[in-house]
Computed example of a mutant assay.
Amino acid sequence: MNKSTLAAVILALLLKAFPLQAQEWKPLFNGKDISDWFVKIHHHATGVNFGNTFRVEDGMIKVRYDQYGDFSDQFGHLYYKQPFSSYHLKLEYRFTGEWCKTAPSYTILNSGVMFHSQDPRTMPVEQDWPISIEMQFLAGLGDGQPRPTGNMCSPGTHIVYQGKLDTRHCINSTSKTYGKDEWVRAELIVLRDSLITHIINGDTVLQYSKPQIGGPVVNRYDPQQKQDGKVLSSGFIALQSEGQPIDFRNIVIREIK
């Protein structure tokens, strides 16, 4: 029995002996406004919702770019007001509308939810991505090729996958491919710096552990915030905007003790 298998067995026995205690489900989005959230968009100060990128309509958080000119790498994130450590997050999303043609091509039908993120108030105006882990959302491009969703991406971070430190920026999940304009149910179970589980439409599609600071992708950050090797056991949750219109609804969380 190797070390990773032994650790998994021990964890399973501990969880059986000392069950996790989950609190009641709590809505993060009230369906009316984003007063409990705040924005950080690349090239803009924290709190500036440039172009009304994040807006509430029809009981949903909508990400739109109709007030943009050139996209100019104005990647954005909408952060819930407080950090979390151990929790079960649920939300629904759908890609819609027309992709912003001046955004990078990799952002077509691409978005996500960031977690264990640094506080956006520690980000310089010109920092492009938060140091965080991302549950990446993708939709099929209509070309018949598989394009899984619920993947892991790691701006300024690494994770342990299949028992080894994995420095790839993104790792694909085992999910099915879902289309544009299709509502998808995404769940994220985070146990501090231990096991992290991605669930899509009820199916577990990816698991990994030990999120930690390290690696590239994040640019123009405050060096004090990027302490490579530091394990991440808590942080902020944020919805992403990177050039593709997307809707979010039914965003709920329950914390786990």
Rank of each mutant, 00 (worst) to 15 (best):
K90H: 10
Q118P: 02
G144D: 15
H42E: 02
N30T: 00
Q67W: 02
F95H: 02
T157Q: 02
D228H: 07
Y161G: 06
I213H: 04
Y93W: 12
L28T: 01
I34T: 14
G202C: 08
T149V: 08
Y106G: 03
I189A: 09
M152V: 13
N219Q: 11
N172V: 00
Y79C: 04
E98V: 13
R94W: 11
S117T: 04
Q240F: 12
S194Y: 12
N151K: 04
C153F: 04
Q227D: 12
K226W: 10
V113K: 03
I246T: 15
M152K: 13
L232H: 14
A12F: 03
L141R: 14
C100H: 11
Y93V: 10
G144R: 02
Q225K: 15
P104E: 07
S234G: 11
I34G: 03
I133G: 06
V190S: 08
V56A: 13
G156V: 09
R220C: 04
I200C: 06
T53M: 09
W37R: 05
P216I: 13
V9Y: 03
H116R: 11
S241A: 14
L195W: 13
M60S: 12
I196V: 15
F84Y: 10
I133R: 05
D33N: 10
D166E: 11
G76I: 08
G31T: 14
S105F: 12
I199F: 02
T5W: 00
G112T: 05
S209I: 10
N110S: 08
G112I: 10
P223F: 00
M135K: 12
E92V: 03
F38N: 09
T102K: 06
H43F: 04
P245Y: 06
L206T: 08
V56I: 02
G179Q: 13
L188R: 07
S175L: 07
L13M: 14
Q118D: 14
Q244M: 10
F50T: 15
Y79Q: 05
K180G: 08
E255S: 02
A139N: 06
N172Q: 05
T149Q: 05
Q227N: 14
T174Q: 14
P27L: 10
T204I: 13
V9C: 12
A12I: 01
R220H: 12
K81F: 11
P211K: 06
L13W: 02
Q127H: 01
R192A: 01
T102Q: 02
S173T: 01
Q118K: 07
G76M: 02
G150W: 04
Q74I: 09
R192F: 08
E182G: 07
T174L: 12
G142P: 10
I251G: 06
K90G: 05
G202V: 00
I246D: 14
D181E: 07
R168A: 14
I133E: 07
I159S: 13
F18A: 12
S85R: 13
L206M: 05
L91Y: 15
Y106S: 07
I253A: 00
D73W: 15
K230N: 07
